[in-house]
């Protein structure tokens, strides 16, 4: 029974159920071709990389009680910077130059994160408003960088970060996994996680316990900026161009949703990176499944909405208590009811 009380139980069940559906509907769920993994599952993993990265940073920001609406714009800027610089290269296939450019784009993203963090922690603006500024202006900056055009690049090393394979696995997914592992190590192997949760629980109490609350808050926005920048690179490498209008459009909402589905409360405090990973994979899989099972395109958002509503309710302890309260929870039937919708 305790497993049923775990906040991650229902999201995990739905994720597995969706994957099972895909297993039956897709002609190739997972196979090996040319020494690479091919099929729906690797596609889901590859496609989930940007959302995973953004949601990861969002988790840390939310743990401090903040929110970062600017991630989509940061994605656009980072993609624009990279594509602009690559398009200026004499040899777009030079690995060294591309790596350097990726580094530059990420540094730019980190600086944007620093700007957010400074507004929140130093100026004291409410996070939702502070990051709204960059959300609005950032896309303009991206448009300015690309001069309103869509910049196409023909760089195979750049494309590799989105579409390449390494050890049979999609590189984009490996990057995301690397970021997740690094974040877990950074937060759970050091005291950072504890200090983050403390700041999220109460900035005042944390300050009086000798924690440099501001510094930690700024750090989370910087990390969020950097990860969003990385996500922007993967996004633009995937389409081999910089599209400052649609890059990362509305991704902040999906990312916040992923974090919340993963059991991290928006008021800050306790956070779960594993939960965020499940949440992000779930949202990505949901999108793929909707197409796979042949839901008409006009109904995709409605379908997603229904699942989201169900998930949000499943996250509410009160709801579970009221609905399953006296009755024995019967997960099997509940899942079956939701899948074929």
């Amino acid at each position: 029974m305790t497993i049923l009380k775990n906040r991650l139980f229902w999201p995990a069940v739905i994720l597995v159920a969706l994957l099972v559906v895909n297993m039956f509907t897709s002609n190739q769920f997972i196979t090996v071709r040319d020494g690479h993994l091919f099929g729906t599952l690797p596609d889901i993993l590859r496609g989930s990389a940007p959302l995973l990265l953004v949601a990861l940073g969002m988790t840390l920001v939310i743990a401090t009680g903040g929110i970062d609406l600017s991630v989509g714009s940061v994605m656009a800027i980072s993609g624009a910077v990279a594509c602009l610089l690559i398009s200026d290269l004499g040899n777009q296939n030079s690995v060294g130059s591309v790596l350097l450019i990726i580094g530059v784009a990420i540094v730019v993203s980190l600086v944007l994160g620093l700007w957010n963090g400074a507004l929140v922690a130093a100026v004291g603006i409410q996070p939702i408003i502070a990051t709204l500024i960059l959300m609005v202006a950032g896309r303009g900056v991206a448009q300015l960088i690309t001069d309103g055009q869509i910049i196409n690049v023909q760089s195979s090393p750049y494309a590799t970060i989105a579409t390449g394979f390494f050890l049979a696995m999609p590189v984009a997914f490996l990057i995301a996994v690397g970021a997740v592992v690094l974040t877990v190590l950074l937060t759970r192997r050091t005291a950072l996680g504890l200090l983050l949760e403390s700041v999220g629980g109460s900035p005042t109490a944390s300050r009086l316990a000798g924690i440099r609350s501001r510094r930690i808050t700024v750090m989370t926005y910087v990390v969020s900026g950097g990860l969003a920048g990385l996500a922007g690179l993967i996004y633009s490498a995937n389409i081999k161009s910089a599209d400052s209008i649609s890059a990362g459009n509305l991704i902040e909402l999906d990312a916040i949703l992923a974090v919340v589905i993963g059991g991290t409360a928006l008021i800050g405090g306790r956070f779960s990176i594993a939960g965020t990973v499940i949440g992000a994979l779930l949202i990505q899989t949901l999108g793929v499944t909707v197409v796979a099972v042949g839901v008409p395109s006009k109904a995709t958002l409605l379908f997603k909405a229904v699942i989201v509503v169900a998930l949000c309710l499943s996250q509410s302890a009160t709801f579970r208590q009221k609905v399953f309260g006296r009755i024995k929870p019967r997960p099997a039937t509940a899942v079956r009811a939701e899948v074929p919708a």
Partner: peptide, 20 residues
């Protein structure tokens, strides 16, 4: 009634309304 955070409940409402 279900103590869902407003941000999340209305985000779900956003998806629902635009989905409709």
């Amino acid at each position: 009634f279900f103590k869902v955070e407003p941000f999340i409940a209305t985000l779900a409402g956003l998806f629902l309304a635009r989905g409709i």
